[in-house]
């Protein structure tokens, strides 16, 4: 009994208290397992980019547009380069939309787990969401709270949509 307690105590002492971007892992294989629910053009980027918005399918199955996203929701914002014509401008399809390439510039992930927001003040926190940024190969680019501070502050403006710019809006638009 004492040995068990000692082992538990030692484990608790050596286990790091993960917080901030440390909590969010790169969703390996997301391109084939997640669902692309929107594509957002970025004509202000040079060269032009297209943001692919992904959600994990388990969360999508549970989510509705009139409630916060369920715990376990993972949203991915993948910035891809657009296909450029000889004039350096993005080529467009028959609908006038930019044509994406397979080249990825960056990957940003926001993930929600029950209780994750408890460490933040209401002014800073985004509910139970955490954020992290990655290189296309999965290398984490954000390792400190300061590096994801802009994620928290920018998403504050969408508190009424569970701090998401596109996901809850997508659910509402498709009547889910």
């Amino acid at each position: 009994m004492i040995r068990t307690l000692l082992v538990l105590a030692c484990t608790a002492l050596v286990s790091p208290a993960f917080a901030g971007p440390e909590r969010v892992d790169f969703p390996t294989g997301y391109q084939s397992t997640f669902y692309v629910y929107n594509q957002v053009e970025r004509p202000d980027r040079t060269p032009n980019q297209i943001r692919f918005m992904y959600v994990n399918r388990d969360a999508l199955a549970k989510a509705t547009g009139n409630a916060p996203a369920p715990s376990g929701t993972i949203l991915i914002m993948e910035d891809r380069y657009a296909k450029l014509g000889p004039d350096g401008q993005a080529e467009r399809d028959a609908d006038g939309r930019m044509i994406p390439t397979d080249r990825v510039a960056a990957v940003a992930v926001m993930e929600k787990r029950d209780g994750w927001g408890a460490i933040y003040t209401p002014e800073k926190g985004n509910g139970d969401w955490e954020y992290a940024g990655f290189a296309p190969d999965g290398t984490k680019r954000t390792t400190t709270d300061a590096q994801v501070a802009s994620c928290f502050s920018c998403h504050q403006s969408r508190r009424q949509r569970d701090w998401t710019f596109t996901f809850i809006k997508y659910l509402q638009d498709v009547g889910k």
Partner: peptide
């Protein structure tokens, strides 16, 4: 954010 029209002008 509208589907099929989504764009961020920066």
């Amino acid at each position: 954010p509208t589907l099929g029209h989504a764009i961020d002008l920066g």
